[in-house]
Amino acid sequence: MALTITCPICGKRNGYEFRYGGEEKGPRPDEKDLTPESWCDYVHMNKCVAGVQQEWWFHRDGCGSWFTIFRDTTTNLEKETPEAKE
């Protein structure tokens, strides 16, 4: 396991039931103002945080919800808030 994800619908479940959906980057930018740089920044670029990050998950084997959680990428443990420390 190593990872459990708390689905807002189904509760805490085995991480393998979910699909990771990327770092939280905010809503889709308006298409008309997009430069190649800003497009690329939204689509491809990551912060690769070694610590707590907000990120998207989809409960693929479960209820079919997309939601965000905070997770510490150095421990694989969920956090309640971005600042949460052990």
């Binding site: 396991m1 190593a2 990872l3 991480g15 393998y16 699909r19 990771y20 990551n46 690769c48 070694a50 990120e55 990428t73 150095t74 421990t75 694989n76």
Partner: peptide
């Protein structure tokens, strides 16, 4: 590979 970013280098039962 476990398909979520992390720096743990932890192995998994799965």
């Amino acid at each position: 590979m476990d398909p979520w970013p992390n720096y743990t280098t932890l192995n998994t039962a799965h």
